[in-house]
Deep mutational scan, measured.
Amino acid sequence: VSVELPAPSSWKKLFYPNKVGSVKKTEVVFVAPTGEEISNRKQLEQYLKSHPGNPAIAEFDWTTSG
């Protein structure tokens, strides 16, 4: 189950709350306009370098507050 949070234009930000008793931590995933899922800052940096014209990296908020 995921919750969609505010994201930069043409992107989606999905929040996957951890299940009770789960060892997996809460996860935030950005979905690029191409449909590619980005789950960490390093991936995001690589994606933005190879896909010019996207929002600046500073516009991506990895917190769950939206």
Score class of each variant (00 low, 15 high):
residue 19 K to V: 12
residue 45 E to D: 08
residue 16 Y to N: 05
residue 30 F to E: 00
residue 22 S to P: 09
residue 17 P to M: 15
residue 66 G to F: 11
residue 53 G to E: 07
residue 43 Q to C: 07
residue 14 L to I: 10
residue 12 K to E: 04
residue 40 N to M: 04
residue 33 P to Q: 02
residue 40 N to F: 05
residue 35 G to L: 03
residue 3 V to Y: 11
residue 19 K to Y: 12
residue 14 L to Y: 14
residue 57 I to P: 08
residue 48 L to Q: 00
residue 64 T to R: 10
residue 35 G to K: 03
residue 61 D to Y: 05
residue 12 K to Q: 09
residue 36 E to S: 03
residue 14 L to G: 02
residue 7 A to S: 06
residue 43 Q to K: 06
residue 51 H to D: 01
residue 48 L to W: 02
residue 54 N to H: 06
residue 26 T to K: 10
residue 60 F to G: 01
residue 9 S to T: 13
residue 48 L to I: 06
residue 2 S to M: 12
residue 58 A to S: 14
residue 62 W to D: 01
residue 63 T to P: 03
residue 20 V to P: 14
residue 9 S to R: 14
residue 42 K to T: 11
residue 34 T to E: 03
residue 46 Q to D: 13
residue 19 K to A: 14
residue 35 G to V: 00
residue 63 T to I: 06
residue 41 R to P: 14
residue 46 Q to M: 12
residue 34 T to I: 00
residue 52 P to W: 04
residue 37 E to P: 08
residue 53 G to Y: 05
residue 3 V to N: 07
residue 8 P to L: 05
residue 50 S to P: 00
residue 40 N to I: 03
residue 45 E to M: 12
residue 52 P to L: 06
residue 65 S to E: 11
residue 5 L to Q: 06
residue 1 V to M: 12
residue 64 T to V: 15
residue 36 E to D: 07
residue 58 A to N: 14
residue 22 S to Q: 10
residue 47 Y to V: 00
residue 23 V to C: 14
residue 46 Q to A: 13
residue 37 E to N: 10
residue 54 N to P: 06
residue 64 T to N: 09
residue 34 T to F: 02
residue 28 V to K: 01
residue 59 E to K: 05
residue 2 S to L: 09
residue 38 I to T: 00
residue 65 S to R: 10
residue 38 I to Q: 01
residue 37 E to S: 10
residue 39 S to V: 13
residue 39 S to A: 11
residue 15 F to W: 15
residue 20 V to G: 11
residue 57 I to S: 07
residue 50 S to E: 13
residue 3 V to W: 09
residue 53 G to D: 08
residue 10 S to L: 13
residue 29 V to M: 07
residue 23 V to I: 13
residue 25 K to F: 13
residue 31 V to F: 08
residue 23 V to D: 15
residue 55 P to T: 04
residue 25 K to N: 13
residue 42 K to P: 08
residue 48 L to E: 00
residue 56 A to T: 11
residue 21 G to A: 08
residue 44 L to C: 02
residue 11 W to T: 02
residue 14 L to E: 03
residue 36 E to C: 03
residue 12 K to H: 08
residue 35 G to W: 01
residue 34 T to L: 02
residue 33 P to W: 00
residue 64 T to G: 09
residue 65 S to T: 13
residue 29 V to K: 07
residue 26 T to S: 13
residue 17 P to G: 08
residue 51 H to G: 01
residue 31 V to Q: 05
residue 56 A to G: 12
residue 50 S to V: 09
residue 24 K to I: 14
residue 55 P to S: 04
residue 53 G to K: 06
residue 66 G to D: 13
residue 61 D to I: 08
residue 47 Y to S: 00
residue 58 A to T: 14
residue 42 K to V: 12
residue 46 Q to L: 13
residue 34 T to S: 07
residue 39 S to C: 13
residue 10 S to A: 13
residue 47 Y to Q: 00
residue 44 L to D: 00
residue 37 E to W: 15
residue 33 P to I: 03
residue 65 S to A: 12
residue 3 V to R: 07
residue 17 P to S: 12
residue 4 E to P: 07
residue 31 V to E: 03
residue 16 Y to Q: 06
